[in-house]
Design a protein around this nucleic acid. Structure first.
Lengths: 142, 142
DNA sequence: TCTTGACCTAGAGTTAACTCTAACTTTCAA
DNA sequence: TTGAAAGTTAGAGTTAACTCTAGGTCAAGA
């Protein structure tokens, strides 16, 4: 099967502009052209999935491009690509921990507003102790 | 205790430019001035923590400003602020699920590269089945 | 054949969130 | 009291990631 820019855009939940922009930035070095028109194929899907993943992990396009460039160079860069994957594993772990930390704050505020709404004024809860003593999650132990 | 812009910047892990930019955008309507100089106080910390939280949940500054404006209006907006908090609770939940989904992809790639490095070439693993059949996490059931 | 819609490019425009500069004021230790 | 460090403002500049426009090509159905 082969797929047009607009089909791939739909699959990735982005605009056709974005797909062409990614190509301009060199993120699709493997995509075939027929009469100048981009033709995506099933064999390109593993990379589309990976791109979608890295994009949603908030990797900047330049960093994604680095990964593409390594992949293009082939087997000699396997270890470097593995390294990049390990970094992403850590990245995900850190992001999940952060979210769990901020969840505590939000849960606190939720209870806070529930009480405030119940009694009709924020005054009653203004001095409730906040579960997080610091401003930044980096300062939080383990 | 009172704190200068640079002290607050340090606490929030941002530059002094950023603190002044946030103030310019109206995110610190409560901050005192002494001879024109900003003076943050302990009573401002709950809001600094909340700001830090919303910022790290990737809320745009305009949205954070909306929350500030509600807070300034006082008790009449308690329900609206509660609503915003509920949205953030969902937001966090969705983000954690997404990360767990992408973690699967990364774990797959990790095993993929481990094998490829072991045998010395990617060819051996090129056709390994990917655990995620779709491109976008939105399409994933439950 | 002709029109419609999807494709192409180069390059300009937009937006968010900073980031910095210039010119000035305030604070504080020596 | 004076010089450095840190504060102030308005407004310009930067960067990433799109987003769009203009001007063109191409394939397919009426």
């Amino acid at each position: 099967m082969s797929y047009s820019v607009s089909e791939v855009a739909k699959m990735m939940n982005v605009s056709t502009y974005t797909i062409r922009y990614y190509d301009k930035e060199g993120l699709f070095p493997m995509v075939k052209r027929v009469n100048g028109i981009r033709v995506f194929e099933d064999k390109d899907f593993p990379w589309l999935r990976m791109l979608n993943c890295l994009k949603n992990l908030n990797l900047p396009i330049k960093k994604i491009k680095e990964y593409v460039d390594l992949a293009v160079r082939g087997d000699e860069t396997l270890k470097e690509r593995y390294q990049l994957i390990l970094e992403q594993e850590e990245n995900i772990q850190k992001q999940i921990q952060e979210l769990q930390y901020y969840k505590k704050q939000i849960d606190f505020k939720k209870a806070y507003y529930e009480k405030a709404i119940e009694v009709g004024t924020e005054e009653a809860v203004k001095d409730w102790p906040n579960p997080a003593a610091t401003l930044d999650v980096d300062e939080v132990p383990d």
